[in-house]
Amino acid sequence: MEPILKGRNLVKRYGKVTALDHCDFDLMPGEILAVIGDNGAGKSTLIKAVSGAVKPDEGEVFLEGKKVNFHSPIDARNEGIETVYQTLAMSPALSIADNMFMGREIRKPGFRGKILRQLDRATMEKMARDKLTELGLMTIQNINQAVETLSGGQRQGVAVARAAAFGSKVIILDEPTAALGVKESRKVLELIQGLKSRGIPIILISHNMPHVFELADRIHVHRLGKRLCVIDPKDYTMSDAVAFMTGAKEAPEAA
């Protein structure tokens, strides 16, 4: 099967530091691929390289088999790759609807949209509400509520909903549960499973081994700037995974 998103021989250097050292990467259609690695292993650089936030010095990225050259996350976004950043990238003082459509607002048809540049708030609010309902987040009553009045889990939910609303091909989730409590994490994990059941492939970056082992179909173990191995969570334990990523244990050969 052809990977939907593929990186080959990716290299990224920051001065004398090599963050990515001839690294490969494969995301298969419909799967949840977890990316784990110790701090400084280069996993966030890898994700940035495939999502356009960083331009690799060498190597190639393919989306659905076609070579792509992203210059910014916006390029990647236009190709259907959505990223939910750890910081969420939302404007706290603006409303849920404003945030979901930030940078891709919908204008009213005809004179009011073309000449007066008026936004079509009703349509945007309806789409935002529909998306949140679809993802089971419609305990949020007021779509015009400022994001800063939401709890951490709700904010994460809105960010994921934004990605799901526009991410037609790949969704990247960077540490989606890192800032959340136990219950809120559970909600977000359910949300991610809900996304998967829709057939959207997901890249999950996380330090939380229980969450990784619960969600992932495959686990990409990153170490010293490259892919050490890809393991099936059913065949290994969490301690094995941690041992691989810290180098305490030899990696299995079949990567």
């Binding site: 996350p73 916006i74 976004r77 990223t83 950043y85 910081t87 969420l88 990238a89 939302m90 404007s91 706290p92 003082a93 603006l94 404003d98 945030n99 930030m102 940078g103 891709r104 607002e105 936004l119």
Partner: peptide, 17 residues
């Protein structure tokens, strides 16, 4: 809306396009 977003959090605004 972009004016507000830029004032609120420029990095977030940039990442949102």
């Amino acid at each position: 809306r972009h004016v507000y977003a830029v004032g609120d959090d420029p990095e977030a605004a940039e990442l949102s396009g």
